[in-house]
């Protein structure tokens, strides 16, 4: 069955069963390998992407729910040449060890910062709670998200001035 999805601003047609989890479609059909398969049962957060403005666990989200919805993956936040604020901040803070959890962390953080780039550390900690990191990179991840919020605020200020 053909499913129409809007991923990172582009409309894509995918031939998949309606109950296929979004994660499989992203990785296997669309070759967007940013979102990771961690546990497959929505308990670790490695597969987190955004649907609309909300962070969603793509491994337990069937594509049939996503017809006409706007999906953003970590690839949609920027490019190698022009990284987005979150990507930039994670590079600057070197907030990764093995890196497996990071795309999910970034997408959940993106949902938070998009709603309010001025959130404090307590809110970031609470919001990122569903995402696990086995390396123990949490302190750097939190720092990176704080910095990303700062970058976003700077950007919107300078954008307002121009």
């Amino acid at each position: 069955m053909a499913v129409t999805l809007t991923v990172n601003g582009t409309t894509r047609q995918v031939d998949a069963d309606p109950e296929t989890p979004l994660l499989y479609v992203l990785r296997d059909h669309l070759e967007l390998n940013g979102a990771k398969y961690g546990c497959g049962i929505g308990q670790c957060g490695a597969c987190t992407v955004m649907v609309g403005n909300e962070a969603v666990l793509s491994c337990v989200t069937p594509v049939l729910l996503l017809e006409g919805r706007s999906i953003t993956t970590v690839e949609g936040l920027g490019t190698l040449e022009k990284p987005g604020p979150l990507q930039q901040a994670f590079i600057e803070e070197q907030a990764a060890q093995c890196g497996y959890c990071i795309p999910g962390m970034m997408m959940r953080a993106q949902a938070l910062l998009q709603a309010d780039p001025a959130v404090d550390e307590a809110a970031i900690r609470a919001h990122l709670e569903p995402n696990l990191c086995r390396c123990g990179t949490h302190m750097r991840i939190i720092k990176a998200v704080m910095r990303a919020g700062e970058l976003m605020r700077q950007k919107s200020q300078s954008g307002g001035a121009s």
Binding site: Q43, V51, L65, L66, R69, E129, P130
Partner: peptide, 23 residues
């Protein structure tokens, strides 16, 4: 179902981000 603090527990992911009323 959010995770308990400081102990293992049942958890369940939230679906409010994807489900609409009809679904």
């Amino acid at each position: 179902l959010p995770a308990a603090r400081g102990e293992p527990s049942a958890i369940m992911p939230a679906y409010r981000g994807v489900l609409n009323q009809d679904q």
